[in-house]
């Protein structure tokens, strides 16, 4: 482990990208904010708390899955991955560094939702740590999914299509913007194929909108472990 490298990389590649290319940040916020707006209008405000609670999840998930484009770009196109292979860092350092940069990139969006959530009394300070833990786990799982995608691709062009599809499926289908209790429990388990589902169910439980489901902690943890393992296999560190 090289924590210093990970932190510097995440800061440079997560934060400087926001400063130097803010349009991308706005783009990443547009889907959750649009959904927040629509949910609020169509439900006459009754589900606004759900849309706010799910916002950070949608942002983190979308930025992490879009990370597949970065990882594929680094591996196939600009060959930065190759440069780092022949150094002292491990594939795990590199993957943590990229994952953390996606989380850093998500911070302004998370902050925006924190403000909204405080204003509408959805988020309480006391639950902040739990929410952060869920967001970190979600970043790890989805980033690793994106490393798998990036590793499987032969051509960079396919990545845009795949991530666009996945990011819609993963952020809109799971109960990120509506109460998970709308779904039969069986459907929740099926949707749990996407780590966004357990994360969303957990958040709704943490903020007290719906009952807390302990089983979702295990599902999310198991998915983190499995995807981290697979991510390492598929990233093609030493080809």
């Amino acid at each position: 482990m090289n924590p210093k490298f990970i932190l510097y990389f995440a800061w440079y590649y997560g934060f400087y990208i926001i400063l130097r290319g803010p349009s991308y940040l706005v783009a990443s916020l547009s889907l959750p904010l649009t959904l927040l707006f629509m949910v609020t209008i169509f439900t006459h405000g009754t589900l606004i708390a759900y849309a706010i609670a799910g916002g950070p999840i949608a942002i983190v998930a979308a930025n992490s899955i879009n990370g597949a484009a970065d990882a594929a770009f680094f591996r196939i196109q600009i060959r930065i991955q190759d440069l780092f292979v022949a150094t002292r860092i491990t594939s795990q350092d590199y993957m943590f560094a990229l994952s953390l940069s996606y989380l850093v990139f998500s911070l302004p969006g998370i902050a925006l939702y924190a403000v909204l959530g405080a204003y509408f009394k959805v988020f309480m300070l006391s639950s902040a740590l739990q929410i952060i833990a869920v967001l970190v786990l979600l970043t790890l799982t989805i980033s690793n999914l994106s490393f798998i995608i990036a590793g499987l691709l032969k051509h960079i062009r396919n990545v845009w299509g795949i991530t666009a599809i996945l990011s819609i499926i993963m952020t809109v289908l799971p109960p990120t913007f509506y109460p998970y209790t709308f779904l039969p429990q069986g459907v929740i388990y099926i949707l749990s194929i996407s780590p966004v589902t357990p994360a969303a169910v957990l958040i709704q439980g943490i903020v007290g909108l719906e009952p807390f489901q302990v089983s979702m902690i295990f599902i999310l943890l198991i998915e983190t472990v499995i995807l981290t393992f697979l991510g390492r296999k598929f990233i093609r560190w030493r080809e």
Binding site: F5, Y8, G21, I78, R79, I80, D82, L83, F84
Partner: peptide
């Protein structure tokens, strides 16, 4: 090892990227 086909990350500066490489 400096790969033939490596390119810089356009949004970062030379100093930043060199620093990351050397830290690695």
């Amino acid at each position: 090892s400096i790969p033939q086909e490596s390119q810089l990350i356009g949004i970062l500066s030379p100093l930043e990227q060199m620093q990351l490489y050397l830290m690695a």
